[in-house]
Amino acid sequence: MAERGFSVSRLPGFSTVAVMVFVALYLPIAMLVVFSFNSGTSVAIWEGVSLRWYVSAWANEQVKEATFRSLIIASAASIVATTVATMAALGTTRRKAFKGQTLIYVMINQPLMVPEIVTAVALLIFFATIKVATGYQGLGYLIAAHSAFCIPFAYLPIRARLEGMDYTLETAAADLYATPWQTFRRVTLPLLMPGVIAGMMLSFVTSLDDVVITLFVKSAGQDTLPTYMLAQIRRSVTSEVNAISTVLLGLTVVMLTVFFLLTRKKD
């Protein structure tokens, strides 16, 4: 393509690299999706369109169980994480600096900084001790662990929303005879809602995606969808995994689209 005039922001070769990067990012995912509809068992040779892998995944008891378990954990964890993160955001945002502020920030963002494998190992040791002591083997451990690492993902969009909020709106409510609680319920919370929903969706997606921590925390027979898939990939029986991946992928894209629409700034 001929250069049309001199563009200051153009740098040689950059556009080519960028286009290649986009292709490289999407080609593997696209192939994975395409071959989930393959009627054959190969992931490289196309044999015709079929929904057989979706049907077989749907019929697979283990997949059903794992899916159900994943959804329970993700729902519980995202509700817990969003609730406590909303409170923390209200506590730490739009305030004069106070003692221990940095400590709270570091604690909340800790799951983003510490490598997952380290947290996973720590939880393995800790929960193993509790499992022995109490005899309880249920999903509570996974829900607690997921809640914890989802907190920063819920906290960040809520905090961003709060920071962008006009403080005078609450002042105005107080001026118009609203008590602090009425101000919160009628003004702060409704205005915060898009941030809360965004935070909840990000936590949900984050919980649904987790492999490492789940792998170390789960008791026997508590596979979630990702840990089930990981086990399947090792055994090389994979076309069913393509189908599950495609569904998960679709779910993520839908959630993200909603998230973007919610957090988009009005111009």
Partner: peptide, 8 residues
Amino acid sequence: FQSYALFP
């Protein structure tokens, strides 16, 4: 208020 502070 200067910014009106109308509830959006």
